[in-house]
């Protein structure tokens, strides 16, 4: 929707709950997007660069989960 149509919550409880919900949504999106990239053959350094975090951080956060899910990971170069 256009930016000017985005409502601004009047109640602080709604604003704070939106932060919580956005964090959960971002976590889910990150899990899904990294998995999608790795299944498509992206390398850890490329995924890290796209996310703006270190290779170590992305590996630490996602490697175990993707290995457990049977995703064929490219070797680090």
């Amino acid at each position: 929707m256009p930016v000017e149509d985005v409502p601004v919550p009047k109640d602080p409880a709604d604003s704070l709950a939106a932060v919580v919900a956005l964090r959960l949504l971002a976590d889910r999106l990150e899990d899904a997007a990294v998995e999608q990239a790795m299944r498509a053959g992206w390398s850890w350094p490329d995924v890290a660069e796209a996310l703006g975090i270190t290779r170590q951080a992305v590996h630490k956060k996602h490697a175990k989960r993707l290995i457990a899910a049977g995703v064929a990971l490219r070797r680090r170069q």
Binding site: M1, P9, A18
Partner: peptide
């Protein structure tokens, strides 16, 4: 809660990620 800031969860259609 997402709709309060103009975000629709329906607009994200990525597959469900593998659990941690």
């Amino acid at each position: 809660s997402l709709s309060a800031v103009g975000v629709s969860v329906a607009s994200f259609d990525l597959p469900k990620p593998a659990p941690a």
